[in-house]
Lab assay of single mutants.
Amino acid sequence: RHRTIFTDEQLEALENLFQETKYPDVGTREQLARKVHLREEKVEVWFKNRRAKWRR
């Protein structure tokens, strides 16, 4: 597996949602994934990693 490289637009959308909710539900993740052309799984893992970074 290779590392996903997120575009600035994707990161902006992910960060904006993170400010709203640290734990978006699957529907919200799917909606964002469609909007920025990512797989929902990638969005889910990004949030998991972003929460870990936020806790540190």
Rank of each mutant, 00 (worst) to 15 (best):
R1M: 13
R1K: 09
R1I: 09
R1T: 07
H2K: 05
H2Q: 15
H2M: 14
H2L: 11
R3F: 11
R3I: 13
R3D: 15
R3N: 10
R3Q: 08
R3L: 14
T4V: 11
T4D: 15
I5M: 14
I5E: 15
I5S: 14
I5H: 09
F6Q: 06
F6P: 06
F6R: 02
T7G: 04
T7P: 01
D8L: 13
D8A: 13
D8I: 07
D8Q: 14
D8K: 15
E9T: 13
Q10E: 02
Q10G: 00
L11E: 07
L11V: 10
L11Q: 05
L11R: 05
E12R: 09
E12Y: 05
A13E: 05
A13V: 06
A13H: 11
L14I: 04
E15T: 03
E15Q: 01
N16D: 14
N16Q: 09
N16Y: 12
N16S: 07
N16V: 07
N16P: 10
N16W: 07
L17T: 05
L17P: 00
L17G: 02
F18S: 00
F18T: 02
F18D: 00
Q19W: 08
Q19N: 12
Q19S: 14
E20R: 08
E20P: 06
E20G: 07
T21M: 13
T21C: 11
T21H: 12
T21E: 08
K22L: 03
K22G: 05
K22I: 07
K22Y: 05
K22Q: 10
Y23C: 06
Y23P: 03
Y23E: 04
Y23D: 08
Y23I: 02
P24S: 02
P24G: 01
D25N: 12
D25P: 05
D25W: 00
D25E: 08
D25M: 01
D25I: 04
V26L: 14
G27R: 11
G27M: 10
G27Y: 06
G27P: 10
G27I: 06
G27W: 12
T28V: 14
T28M: 07
T28P: 01
R29L: 07
R29Q: 03
E30D: 12
E30F: 07
Q31W: 11
Q31M: 07
Q31N: 15
L32N: 07
A33P: 01
A33M: 00
A33Q: 00
A33E: 00
R34K: 07
R34A: 09
V36A: 07
V36F: 09
V36I: 15
H37C: 14
H37M: 09
H37W: 02
H37S: 07
H37K: 09
L38K: 05
L38R: 00
R39N: 15
R39D: 14
R39V: 13
R39T: 15
R39Y: 08
E40H: 06
E41L: 03
K42C: 10
K42W: 13
K42V: 14
K42T: 13
V43M: 05
V43D: 00
E44G: 06
V45R: 10
V45I: 11
V45Y: 08
W46E: 00
F47Y: 10
F47G: 01
F47N: 02
F47D: 00
K48N: 06
K48M: 10
N49G: 07
N49D: 10
N49W: 11
R50A: 10
R50D: 01
R50Q: 08
R50F: 01
R51D: 02
R51E: 01
R51V: 01
R51G: 02
R51M: 03
R51Y: 01
A52E: 11
A52N: 11
A52M: 13
K53W: 11
K53P: 03
W54K: 04
W54H: 12
W54M: 12
R55W: 06
R55M: 14
R55N: 14
